[in-house]
Write a protein that binds this DNA or RNA. Structure first.
Lengths: 236, 236
DNA sequence: TGTACATCAGTGAACGCGCGTTCACTGATGTAC
DNA sequence: TGTACATCAGTGAACGCGCGTTCACTGATGTAC
């Protein structure tokens, strides 16, 4: 039976999870910089030194939370995209954008953990990169599908890329979507910064007094960004 | 003479400044959440309780730093705008955008203080609003000048605003630029979130591996956002 | 199935450090007559 | 110009609290024969 080594192993897996859950709860109170192993242990009814059986240091716990957050957001977004007919690229785009926002508003402290200011003294290891790429890859995948289907329209007013930017776009394309024209990739990146820029403004309180609540502002901008990357209006 | 009460008052003004300067220096090391009165006092060769003659609490010091940062950024931006011929609205727009970035890159920790994640447990008082409005008002002023001069072009693909968004835009227009069409104001807000979205991505390390350094990406987006709000291409 | 040993989880004390804020105080600077 | 008093800046000790991490240890769970 595979439950053979379980009593121990299962307990370990469960407690690891409980530690992360409690830590996530505490992010809301004190932020990533103030995350305290002792407080987590206290809340779990353990002694603080016991946590070192599960995470070698505070920073490792933080890293685990960051990767979990990127993956949760990535998965939600991938599912939203997958829920729309492949050819309806604009529908996929909008669904993905709204999934990102819904997740961010649902767990604002995890959003802050990954898209807020860096935690002072904490250096993120490179393991986070794969998880962090999931949302960008969803959006790029949609644009690529539109391009492949030949429905992507090049907006009239697009300027040629300057030299360094063209090189960067080429390198990025090579790594991520070789068939895509570099200008399109840069447009997608603009759209991406727009999306997260709005979310950060909203969640960090910068929109209070202008467009707050910002549901419709976000929706309008998501449409506008779909235009900007050249997605067609209706399903063919 | 106005130096009459000086010895005391001048010393007070100078020390207040030195405390803020040292606190700013420490933002780089420990972030806003970790700003420590004791550390500031130590560095200044004072005893920690002495700081209470200057700031009633840690949070008041933080508030002073925040207002200073907004004002410094606001002033830089206003000056950049003022340095370009009034009729060259696109030139003014681009100069302002680049001034914002130059300031942000020059004092990343102050940028983080005002546009990064909120400090846990700190509630910003409403005094910050006026200072925080300076950059938005510069950009809106440029758009308004273009509108007044009749050089603002309405892009072809603008959608009508949805109901709530239209109301919010009207309210915002009433408060800030009554003559401006609401759609234009929303476009300006989109441009604003784009600008700060890019800066946050850049400064918080989210662009590493894609368009880094991002000078040209930023420049291209600033142009693109000028298009989006409808600024004419060349000085008339 | 039963015993001997190895692995692992959790304990509790300790190290060495940090913090914000209060309070009674000394001594210098400023003010009014 | 000189004295008496009020204001203010800075001191040093203290309160009460927090933190991450290490280490020798007990006792339970798992493994090999």
């Amino acid at each position: 039976m595979n439950a053979g080594r379980t009593a121990r192993e299962r307990a370990r897996a469960e407690l690891t999870q409980e530690i992360k859950d409690e830590a996530r709860r505490q992010l809301a109170l004190s932020g990533a910089g103030g995350l305290s192993l002792r407080a987590v242990a206290r809340e779990l009814g353990m002694v603080s030194s016991a946590l070192y059986r599960y995470f070698p240091s505070r920073d490792d716990l933080l890293t685990a939370l960051i990767i979990d957050a990127y993956n949760a957001l990535g998965e939600t977004t991938e599912q939203a995209d997958a829920g729309v007919a492949r050819l309806d690229v604009r529908g996929r785009w909008l669904a993905s954008c709204h999934a990102v926002r819904a997740w961010a508003k649902g767990q604002p402290h995890e959003y802050t953990l990954i898209y807020g200011s860096p935690v002072p003294g904490y250096q993120a290891p490179t393991d986070t990169v794969a998880a962090a790429s999931r949302v960008p890859l969803v959006l790029i995948g949609i644009v690529r599908d539109a391009d492949t289907a030949g429905t992507l329209s090049a907006p009239a007013d697009v300027r040629p890329l300057t030299s360094v930017l063209a090189e960067q776009a080429d390198a990025l394309a090579a790594a991520v979507a070789p068939e895509l024209p570099p200008q399109v990739l840069i447009s997608a990146l603009t759209a991406l910064t727009q999306i997260f820029g709005m979310l950060s403004f909203e969640l960090f309180g910068q929109l209070v007094g202008s467009v707050d609540p910002s549901d419709e502002f976000y929706a309008a901008s998501a449409e506008r960004m779909a235009d900007l990357v050249g997605l067609p209006v209706s399903p063919p």
